Simulated scan of single mutants.
Amino acid sequence: MTIQTAKLSDPSVRAFVTAVNAHDREGFLSLLAPGATMADDGSDRDLDEWIDREIFSSHGHMEVDNESHGGRALVARYRNDTWGEMRTTWSFTVEDDGRISRFETGQA
């Protein structure tokens, strides 16, 4: 069962998923804290390069199956033009100002 994006608990994570699914790169970047970092399958990646390749140039889309840790951990079906669909986990570090300073993703 999919959780509607509008019903995700954490407002920053909800905005992140919304921006990914709308292919809104500018909106996505505005959610990130200065110097934000990310990891994919346990390895730190260059954030700008990764989001261009895995989200924006390849039409990434997230369908959230469940959330935990107050909405800051997700299990989602993620698909893009490069890899097709896969079951993924996402975890987010959100600062006091609501911006995301780190996210980690990987295959579930």
Rank of each mutant, 00 (worst) to 15 (best):
A22P: 00
L29K: 14
R102V: 09
D65W: 04
E54V: 10
D46L: 04
S91A: 11
S68M: 09
G60K: 01
E54N: 03
G27L: 12
I100L: 00
R87T: 12
E85R: 13
G35K: 08
D40R: 06
H23W: 13
Y78M: 05
G42Q: 10
D97M: 07
S57L: 06
M38I: 00
Y78I: 05
D44I: 02
D40F: 12
N21C: 06
N66M: 08
E26S: 12
Q4R: 15
S43H: 11
I55A: 03
G42K: 14
S68E: 07
V94H: 03
R25Y: 04
R14Y: 03
S57P: 01
S57N: 06
M86C: 13
L74M: 11
F16P: 00
S57K: 10
F92K: 07
T105P: 00
D24G: 02
S12T: 01
G84T: 09
R53T: 14
V20R: 02
F92H: 07
T82P: 04
D41M: 05
Q4K: 15
G60D: 02
F16E: 02
S101G: 10
P34W: 07
D40T: 10
V64M: 09
M1Y: 03
A108G: 07
A33I: 03
S9R: 12
S43A: 06
D52V: 02
A33S: 13
Q4A: 13
G106A: 12
T93M: 02
H23Y: 10
A19E: 05
S57F: 15
M1C: 07
W50T: 07
P11K: 02
G71I: 09
V94S: 01
D52I: 00
T37W: 05
L8C: 02
I100D: 01
A39W: 05
R77E: 15
